[in-house]
Amino acid sequence: MSDEKLSEIWYTRCPVPTPVGLAAQLGYLEETFAAEGIALRSIIDSPDPAIRQSHFNHTLNWSFRHGGNVPPIRARSEGRKTRLVGITWTDEFQAVITLPQTGIRSVSDLKGRRFGIARRPEGIVDFHRATALKGLVSALSLEGLSHRDVEIVDVAVRDSVLDKFGDASLFGLRRRPPHGEEIAALIRGEIDAIFVKGTPGIAVANLIGAVLVADFGFHSDPNIRVNSGSPRLLTVDELLAEKRPDLVARLIEAIFRASEWAKAHPDDTRRFVAREAGATEEQVLVANGPDLHHHLGLSLEPGLIAAVGAYKDFLLEWGFLAGDFDIGEWVDPRPLEAATRRAAA
């Protein structure tokens, strides 16, 4: 153990199903670090945009992150000194939807049609766009089509996810749900179909009475399902990993504890995830399936690492990364191995 003295650690998680989110709500994270005399500070809850930006670019020292994989992969491609210490795979609703009047009823009907994909302002990696593009590619592959068989139409989004934190335009909420601009373009007839996912996707598809063109979030082929949220990554900055690996192992122990709690409390887990996602329990049940409580673990199994590598290659091909890097060199298995040994003991 290092004698490095710390008074606080920064952390962040996405508003989606993650064992870190569950551990935070159960008090396990705060309890774990309080025992070490360390206070937890939430990056995403900070009123300072410069701090909140680390949720997307992983710039803060002494920090960890659990959530969608596009920002940490992008940060690593830019040379950020981070470590991948755990992977969670929780399947979720992924679909292409349209409106009844388009006449689109199947993936093959998408050929030659306009597919709307949001494009956000510069500043951070456009993970929403990356997600929608992978969703489009996956959907088209179900019928042997490619992105060249459709017309991709950019839908401009004015606000950055870093803007308007607490602004009156959010009507008292913390963030604006995704897909708003795409839905508006769909209703105006400017595009013919869009990609949606997760509990927000379920909500908007229900709201507009959408036609389901393709539903593949639980497809048997993981290459079809892999996207920004499948799998989700636990990453830590290099300083924390090298100077205090004991704390990273303690973090993973707290996550293990939350994962085991989830397995024994399926209904409570659904309620906690709904709170985390700002969704209803019904939406969580539909979006993530009845076995969600069994899919909030953490591991570095070779198949999961390969899935991260496959999505990294997709992001590189589509121009979302600053450069290529070796996934194997990014992975640091030591904290997970130490936590597993302690759990077994």
Rank of each mutant, 00 (worst) to 15 (best):
291 D>Q: 13
280 T>K: 04
244 R>V: 00
290 P>C: 01
235 T>L: 10
331 V>R: 05
252 I>T: 00
290 P>D: 02
286 V>I: 15
287 A>S: 12
239 L>S: 11
279 A>M: 06
309 G>H: 07
242 E>P: 00
324 D>L: 09
241 A>W: 01
284 V>R: 07
301 E>F: 14
266 P>L: 09
301 E>W: 10
241 A>R: 01
330 W>Y: 09
331 V>Q: 09
251 L>C: 03
293 H>Q: 10
340 T>L: 13
294 H>L: 15
252 I>F: 04
319 G>I: 07
312 K>A: 08
328 G>Q: 12
273 V>A: 03
275 R>I: 12
272 F>E: 10
289 G>N: 03
333 P>M: 07
235 T>D: 08
325 F>I: 01
304 L>H: 15
265 H>S: 08
280 T>M: 04
326 D>M: 08
247 L>T: 00
293 H>F: 10
317 E>A: 15
320 F>E: 04
301 E>D: 14
306 A>T: 10
248 V>C: 08
326 D>Q: 07
298 L>N: 03
245 P>T: 03
275 R>G: 12
326 D>T: 07
320 F>D: 02
334 R>N: 11
295 H>I: 02
260 E>L: 12
296 L>V: 05
269 T>W: 07
249 A>E: 06
287 A>N: 02
257 R>V: 06
250 R>K: 15
